[in-house]
Nucleic acid binder design. Sequence first.
DNA 1: ACAATTACATAACAAATATCATATTTAAAA
DNA 2: TTTTAAATATGATATTTGTTATGTAATTGT
Lengths: 225, 225
Amino acid sequence: MNRCESCIVKEFNSLKALTRDELMRISSCKTGKLFKKGEIIFEEGEILNGVFCVKDGVCKLSKLSENGKDQVVKLVVKGGLLGKRSIVSDETTNLSAVALNDMEMCFIPKSEIMADLKKNPNFTLDVLQKMAGDLRDSEDTLVDMAQKPVKQRIAETLLYILDNFGTDEDGYLSIVISREDYASIVGTATESAIRILSHFKKEGFISTSGKKIKIEEPKALKWIQ
Amino acid sequence: MNRCESCIVKEFNSLKALTRDELMRISSCKTGKLFKKGEIIFEEGEILNGVFCVKDGVCKLSKLSENGKDQVVKLVVKGGLLGKRSIVSDETTNLSAVALNDMEMCFIPKSEIMADLKKNPNFTLDVLQKMAGDLRDSEDTLVDMAQKPVKQRIAETLLYILDNFGTDEDGYLSIVISREDYASIVGTATESAIRILSHFKKEGFISTSGKKIKIEEPKALKWIQ
DNA sequence: ACAATTACATAACAAATATCATATTTAAAA
DNA sequence: TTTTAAATATGATATTTGTTATGTAATTGT
């Protein structure tokens, strides 16, 4: 099974729902694309006619707030899909996608997936369940944003990245993003994010090497409030 | 068409997707329920085996944050459904539902709807689109929460209620909720919500009569930041 | 109608966070 | 490499928001 098949599998849990043939056809992935660090994959307001599947690299899904600041809604890594919602709704996307490092992606046209959605109820039900999970996550994040102080949000973001994307061979978080990105994940000023990360470093909760961050005391971060 | 049919229609746009017979069967609504103001309809962590349909009254969907404060995620009025996600996922609900005034509801068992989800792909696709819309809303709210100051969030909440739930014959917002609820919609302290509403009143943007609020200057509220 | 409770209101103060200014370090480009 | 630009870091200060306290008005229950 090639990597592109596996991304469909990861997102839609489709091994059960899609037949081998359907999976192969969707995964044929004729339009592979490369994006460089910082490059825009799509922007808020565009109409997407398919989904992007991440084969390598990391990107952020974000939305520009009225005050001109970017808010990161989600990080997507290998095996993740961008533009899922565009499959079922014809509206423009409400999010922008930007590569955080060099990326390899493939593109699956909407038409390919729509065919299966209409034919295969199990597949549709599966997509539905995935969407329900996304909604739950988004609601939970909303509550965190509204109720938890910045320091706690940053601590939890570090733990989230550790838990979901892991570390490299030296124990540093495998996802390396700027302080500005951390700020726009938790919705604060860049200086505040920097200050809090410096504080964590001073306390020994984390250590850094360039932009890389190593989590030394996950328990200490968990207790922060 | 009775009111209970209409709520299914509103949420799922099912006139097209469901046959008349399917709609009638689901809407049969044998288990009507009444809830008094303040009563809990269901709580975070429960397993729901169906959806509630609001026939009259208003309720809030909220989630208890770790700091013990309630965060309102959504207001639901006549025609809205509670527990939609429970239909497709077997997980416990992440939200609590509490009646904000006396309510009349009906309950549709999960099994009734599941049958149609599995048989009728168009219906499933329709539910999927609705869920995609909910996800978009939730993401947009998340960005607002993270990026906009409290004053602006309260101003926008007032306008949201005006636009979505309208006014009574005297021009007051038809949804009447406590200052504490306003606070927990925008994620702030009750005193802060009170202070800001008082400020709006002093500026002439709104006027009040008891707990009722009338929006006098929607444009002024729109410009706040 | 009355007491008791709850909601609303306001002020004074404390804490959190944003903004502005300015180094310093790191990465990118010439 | 050298130069330039960008990212990181930190302090001082302003603003926003939370907390505590106290009082008034409105509801509720008896």
